[in-house]
Design a binder for these strands. Structure first.
Length: 129
RNA sequence: UCAGGUGGCCGGGCGGCCGCGGCGGCAAGUCCGGAAACGGCGCCGUCGAGGAAAGUCCGGGCUCCAUGGAGACAAGGUGCCGGAUAACGUCCGGCGGGGGUGACCCCAGGGAAAGCGCAGCAGAGAACAGACCGCCAGGCCUUCGGGCCCGGCAAGGGUGAAACGGUGCGGUAAGAGCGCACCGCCCCGACCGCAAGGAAGGGGGCUAGGCAAGCCCCACCUGGAGCAAGACCGAAUAGGGAUGAGCGCGGCUUGCCGCACAUGUGUCUCCGCAUGUCAUCCGGGUAGGUCGCACCAGGCCGGCCGCAAGGCCGGUCGCAGAUGAAUGGUCGCCACCCCGGACUCCGGUCCGGGGGACAGAACCCGGCUUACAGGCCGCCUGAUCCU
């Protein structure tokens, strides 16, 4: 239980997204979050990774950009508090992400992160599968 | 004032709190990530989406590939004339045709006496037309309603997208450009215009049809692919080359096979298994990284030329550069619009609630097309009112 804020770095490569997609996921009405523990060899245990996705199904480029920005802001505020060190997260926008009230969107993100942390390993040592 | 036409412009503003990307300056460490290439970390300043950034439909710049020159053919595109432009299928000014009382709007608008082809249905007849109903003279018959035969005709009806000129008068048995007037059409055409084209006037009794967005003919244009272009740097693994060291025998297809041998391993032998080279360097090159990458057919202001598109000259400004993709998230206030309520000196005031479109640069320009809440300005037209 470290109380220090975690450093967040962005996932940018396609293979990183595919890797995280093999992990657990938590579904809320305005967001889907996937999480997976990174490989032990190259792991930095004081950081978390974050990536953002909005499919074409959500809307045009304007809507998808807005969804990713809102999720990015939510992740910036919540991930250092509720993310698990050594894990990578992928935030997937849903149809209601762009129009959801900001406090409710934050609530969805927070509860999804918390349930992923409980599900996963107490103390950060559990299996990813 | 109402209705309409047309050209242009805007696409909310201000402020908290938190955050992102570029550039410049200062400051930098035995710092962080990475094998490396390279990237990152602090502070200050500054800049940071659109009129369509969209669709990717044209035209260029730029890059690589191909290419001796010229022509022919094929394929695709363009299609009145003149101008603008780097260029265009764009723009401007004209011409012709069509629509509208008008401002104005719309038009793929070359060629149908080069050739082929097409015209469904309806209708009597549709391309060197045709006679169903109908009209008329004569003959015959008659139950006096009309019918039949032979000939003349195409005015009227009806069909159609289109029926081989229209209206009127004359003419005739009935009719017909048969004759005449006007309109239309065809041919010639002084003169005007750079041209498309216009056109006074003259002649012709009317014949010459439509579709080229069916093929075609004519004129002109076009090499291909695209910034994931392309250039540079550059792991691991496999394979290639060079040098040095190592290297037994036999076979041949000359770098492979077989045997032997060597090395490693299990305590040693037999036997079994594995390897048959090692070191250094070079080149190509994947993941990855850097450049390309933002200063130009540039914006604004003024002057001159031009009806205009636009051109020339001078001044001034520096104006996004991301790459799982920055330019934001959130909360207030104001302005605008709509709805409800209250008050009112009928102009508004106050309170509450709601709304703000289409849409996100991706190498860069010039256009086109399409989408769009709401709003502003100029000019013009037609009504109506007042002076």
């Amino acid at each position: 239980m470290d109380t220090q804020p975690l450093a967040v770095n962005r996932l940018k490569k396609r293979r990183e997204f595919l890797f995280v997609a093999q992990g657990k996921k938590a579904v809320r009405s305005s967001v889907v979050i996937q999480a997976r523990r990174r490989d032990g060899s190259s792991c930095l245990y004081d950081t978390v990774g974050a990536g953002f996705t909005a499919t074409r199904k959500i809307g045009g480029a304007v809507v998808r950009n807005r969804c990713k920005r809102r999720l990015r802001e939510a992740a910036r505020l919540l991930l250092p508090l509720h993310g698990q060190p050594g894990f990578d997260y992928v935030f997937i926008a849903r149809a209601s992400t762009s129009a959801k009230d900001w406090p409710r969107l934050m609530g969805d993100v927070k509860s999804a992160l918390v349930s992923l942390a409980e599900d996963g390993a107490p103390g950060g040592k559990g299996q990813t599968a």
